[in-house]
């Protein structure tokens, strides 16, 4: 009975969105991620596809959907850069999976939790990227820890501002 209750509770908390939102929001994140750094220069300390991956993974609470969303967005990010295709893909795959797995267990409505979760997942994504580049692939890749930190902070701030806006797009049953 407890299991059924828990499952029902979980099902009730799963958010649903119109199909267009699943297409347009990730696309917008890719387009803006490609366009905004040109306007902001080297102060573009954010990764919108990662924020969107975390949002949908937390909202849907489905590790598979989080995994697929992260993989697709990561691969597109890689394809837009000149680097190896798959590095961001693997990192965001892991992030999507982790976010969804965490979302099942904790309340993600709280802004502080969202902020902290996005910050930690951004650091995880950076760590996976660096690990793949330097250890797995053996490619030369220079990086600076404070840049990764700033990106994680930027993602957390963007998430706190963006998540409430995206919340308005969900389908409500009442």
């Amino acid at each position: 009975m407890a299991v059924i209750g828990s499952s029902l509770r979980r099902d009730l908390e799963i958010r649903r969105y119109p199909i267009l939102v699943y297409v347009l929001v990730p696309l917008a994140s890719l387009v803006l991620q490609a366009w905004l750094p040109r306007e902001l220069g080297r102060f573009a300390w954010f990764d919108l596809p990662l924020v969107v991956t975390v949002y949908f993974a937390l909202g849907r609470r489905s590790p598979i959907q989080g995994t697929v969303m992260g993989a697709v967005l990561g691969l597109f990010e890689d394809a837009l850069s000149h680097r190896a295709i798959g590095v961001n893909g693997i990192a965001k795959t892991a992030v999507g999976f982790m976010a969804a797995s965490v979302g099942i267990r904790i309340d993600v409505e709280n802004h502080a939790i969202r902020l902290l979760l996005t910050f930690l997942l951004s650091l995880l994504s950076s760590a996976i990227c660096i690990f793949i580049y330097r250890v797995l692939l053996g490619l030369e890749y220079k990086w600076q820890w404070f840049t990764e930190l700033f990106i994680a902070i930027g993602n957390a701030v963007v998430a706190v501002m963006l998540f409430p806006l995206l919340d308005r797009l969900q389908i409500k049953d009442y």
Partner: peptide
């Protein structure tokens, strides 16, 4: 969930392995 994760990650790792080559001096290049 874990199976899907593994499949997606492994597929991408294979893709990476195809792209990256190691030359005679032991350096990896795209």
């Amino acid at each position: 969930n874990l199976v899907v994760l593994l499949v997606v990650v492994v597929a991408q790792m294979v893709g990476l392995a195809v792209q990256v080559r190691r030359n005679t001096s032991g350096q990896s290049t795209l």
